[in-house]
Computed example of a mutant assay.
Amino acid sequence: MRFARYLSVMLVKLAIVATLILAFIAEVLDLVDNAGDIVDAGEGVSGILLYAGLRMPILLVHAMPLGTLIGALLTLALFARNSEISAMRSAGRGVFNIYLMMLPGALVLVILHSTLIDVVAPRAQSKLAIQITQRLENRQEGMRDTKITRLRVGDDIITFDRVSDRGRRLKEVRVYDRGPDKIVTARTTAREARWRDGKWTLSGAEKISWTRDTLSQKTPADGVWTTTMTPDDVLGALSPESRISLDSARKVLAGQQTPNAPLPFYETLVERVYAMPLGLIVMVLLAMPAALLNWRDVRSTRHMAFALLAGLGFLLTDGLLTTLGLTGVVRPTIGAWSGVAAFAVIGAFRIWRIDAGWKPARRGRPPVGLPAEAGA
């Protein structure tokens, strides 16, 4: 029990350190691209620090699977170097027993990852979107922002040029009404849309209809704008790599919140909230062949290389299948879980082969003219 705690604590420490290093590297690269815009907006060093702090949670979400793999490999390598793995195997404990002793540490990492995915990252992304709107607000009023933001609300497409007041005020709004066949039937243009008392109000608005009965007929459209879009949806559209919490995704599927993407996106997202953290356990499982590392035998490094390649292959395959699920190419359950399940089987099979013993190498055939005993 004491040794299991020692293994788990070492795994958690090294995995967190590796995750932080990877996240800081990604943070530096991200600031290289965005620090200039922040400084041009007049926010200075404080604005850069605020941006870096708000971006860090989402970077940690992406870095933690690889950080867990690296942490597990380093843990096993350190124990192998101190001959602790050899002592454990001499006492009759196999690689699977070592994995079970590291499992509590992996579960701690799963809890941390789940908290980042569903609690910390969505809130940080929301505040980041507010910072972006404030940056737009601080620009000169006469300067037109050429970047157009688009989002889908139900079947309709909404675009706007500028945002202020934390998503409660939109400039140059265009609403494209679409029928069940996805064909545009009308377009509404408005100089401004403001959010007051839980509803949108359009000013300087005009609607043009393209149906057969009212082709190209223009009518004033000032007044209340009936839509399920909220300022939070506007902020979500502005935020790069926006993450949606499990609660928000469930509200969309229940029809209580505006969908900004196809429904398979939200269905896959709900599944990934559970599947993605469990991928950390799979990462530790794939790293276990590194327990065969022997610092006196260079050939044993192939076990470390196999573990590293298997972990990278899992990241690539899982990301590809998740993308297919988000876009509706495959079923959400398949996209979210198949990568985790497949590589869990691969990792378990690898451990079973290690504990069961490898097949002995085939003996070479004796040279011609020599008896079998002599060639043996």
Rank of each mutant, 00 (worst) to 15 (best):
M10F: 00
F79R: 09
P332Q: 02
G67M: 04
R168M: 13
L316I: 15
V330R: 01
R350S: 14
A72K: 12
P122N: 12
I85M: 11
P277W: 09
A129C: 15
S46L: 13
E267G: 00
A190G: 04
D161P: 02
G319D: 02
V368R: 12
Y176C: 04
D118V: 13
I346R: 04
T227E: 00
D156I: 14
L309I: 08
V120S: 10
R2T: 13
R123T: 10
R331T: 01
I148N: 05
V108R: 07
I208C: 03
S203F: 08
P277K: 07
W200V: 03
E137S: 03
A77K: 07
G154V: 03
V39A: 06
K147M: 09
R250M: 13
F3W: 13
T230Q: 12
E206Q: 13
L78P: 06
Y176P: 14
V298F: 11
D233L: 10
W210V: 06
A26W: 09
T211D: 12
A41L: 10
W210L: 10
F3C: 07
L112Y: 08
A291H: 08
R55A: 14
D37K: 14
L370A: 05
I85C: 09
R139C: 07
G105I: 12
D155R: 15
A275K: 10
G167C: 13
A18Q: 02
V45K: 02
G236K: 11
T68W: 07
P259R: 07
